[in-house]
Design a protein around this nucleic acid. Structure first.
Lengths: 332, 332
DNA sequence: TTGTAAGCGTTATCAA
DNA sequence: TTGATAACGCTTACAA
């Protein structure tokens, strides 16, 4: 159906080898011959079949990325950075969302079969699958997973950021805290955030679980918590979406933020800036995470590096209104 | 490097044809033979090469999607719906973002070479490229582009929604309007929104251009506009991000929304709900758009349909606080 | 400078 | 029920 290299060769009156050479610039071709080939290519609107090229070259020229889901700004921002750099490097991006999928293992393996390397968010692949992938020699970059051998890992700093945030809140004079959106899985970002927060706040902070890390879950859990007997003075939320849910709950209960209750988030998604009060949060470089993942993967695929690398990116405490008054900011 | 069907065949003591049959269940295989084959497959950890399979089957089992950029919730929500359905249908998703890319044509063609069909956001592909793609017979679904033959199109309703919104604002008693984020391209969503709004509001509404449809652009343009001599009473923004920018500008100028100025958005992204005042907006079914695109594409690829289909999805006017007081809602 | 032919890893037809 | 073998569309030694 599609035009093949044979048809081009025939039309140009040369062999397919010559067509290939003329098109890729590999090997010598006389100006005259090149002319003929190019002409035939134009007339026939020939585009080499990706499948044929890949099979012969032994590479896909494509990267995969596996994330739990695409809803919420965090993963999409990372994806944005990833796609941008991957395409600069001449590689297509194949995506896979595991959320709500019955056969994650199969899906990840299937994906692995169509790409030269994979970026995987820590929470999406079970340990044994990870081991299996590593064993195949597939280039792998994990985001927000504990460093391991045989694959790169990459994440934003959490523990120290959490400490800074906790100290800042202590500076406001709060004494009773809750950490909304407590960790479910050891080793992930949330766990590290809790680790840092609880190291500073000790028994003054209580972990509170949410069903998921979403606005709705945050709302539900906050509602329940804030109706309770001993309301905390500050709510440290495990991410911005949970915090937005908490803000909604506070409003519904008639609690003024930050006067009656301080609230903080994590990530600095777009809505954090536009919420009222604007959310104090810890900004993590989401796009940069994606961009670096793409570059790391490229190195792995290219075989530039022998050993695996483990990067941690710096974050920034973004102080806005939701954590309390900052007199120095309002000189009036 | 990887295990091939030949090695499996050898180990099982059968031919590659038999291995293929045993694995795919096509053609008869004795129980005994199947046993042997499966055993060899297990031991060797054989997975059929995607490239080999695709080449032989003549299909990629993958879909592409082309969007202008991945920042901002609109495209990612559509992508979410698309990926979900595509993967249900057994197709991988290859993404391509055209933003900031020098060679869009090449990139789209390259993408077309790795997939069985393409979803394209209207604004990303120039007309002649579209014609070229259609000519190749590639299954194509356009989102928010004028209906055409040779491809499906799909979009959310705009004109009538815009009318409803304009009427609602008139009901508030406003008389001077601005449409912030005026259209740049004929035929796109923004153009249709402007069409509906201006049909109702006539000379009472003035179109105001923004550089892009982003928070920053909206902020810049709104700042300039609101500082002007004759400030409008209501700002109808072409999408939520522009509206969020306008909200920021109003705040900076000390204008109370909605008392001094009404503001509305479009799309109903997450931040619209959390902004204060919460944004009155028109919700469009972004995920559904993606989901339908995936299904339409699947029909096209499967050859189920002869003619091309053109769908328009219904929207919903979401009235919140930013457009003015609604006494009936606050019975107190 | 050009052509022949051997892969690359499958599927599927046709005999046996 | 099984096995040869011809596609599928390209790249790239190796010869000429």
């Amino acid at each position: 159906m599609d035009v093949t290299i044979y048809q081009v060769a025939e039309r140009a009156g040369v062999s397919i080898a010559t067509v290939s050479r003329a098109l890729r610039g590999t090997g010598p071709v006389s100006a005259k011959t090149r002319e003929k080939v190019l002409k035939a290519v134009q007339e026939l609107r020939f585009t080499p079949s990706r499948l044929g090229v890949s099979l012969a070259e032994g590479r896909h020229a494509a990267n995969g990325i596996v994330f739990p889901n695409l809803s919420g700004p965090y993963y999409t921002e990372v994806l944005l950075g990833y796609e941008e750099v991957a395409s600069e490097l001449g590689r297509s991006v194949v995506i896979l969302s595991t959320k709500g999928r019955p056969n994650v293992r199969e899906a990840i393996k299937e994906l692995a079969g169509r790409v030269d390397g994979l970026v995987v968010f820590g929470s999406t692949a079970p340990d044994d699958l990870v081991a299996e992938l590593v064993a195949t020699g597939m280039p792998l970059v994990f985001i927000s997973r504990e460093p391991m051998s045989g694959a790169d890992t990459l994440r934003s700093e959490n523990v120290e950021s959490a400490r800074r945030l906790a100290c800042h809140l202590q500076g406001h004079g709060y004494a009773r805290f809750a950490f909304l959106g407590a960790p479910h899985q050891p080793g992930d970002d949330i766990s590290q955030r809790w680790e840092g927060v609880s190291a500073v706040l000790k028994d003054a902070v209580e972990p509170v679980l949410t069903a998921e890390y979403t606005v709705d879950s945050g709302y539900e859990a906050a509602l329940k918590l804030l109706r309770g007997r001993t309301r905390p003075q500050a709510l440290i939320c495990s991410d911005d979406e949970v915090a937005l849910g908490a803000l909604l709950a506070a409003e519904e209960l008639g609690l003024a933020v930050p006067d009656d209750l301080a609230v903080t988030g994590w990530d600095d998604i777009m809505a954090a800036r536009h919420a009222r009060p604007a959310l104090t949060t810890i900004r993590q470089p989401m796009r940069e995470l994606g961009a670096r993942a793409a570059r790391a993967l490229d190195e792995l695929i290219g075989g530039v590096r022998a050993t695996s690398a483990h990067q941690t990116l710096a974050t920034e405490l973004v102080i806005r209104k939701s954590c309390g008054e900052h007199p120095q900011e309002d000189p009036k």
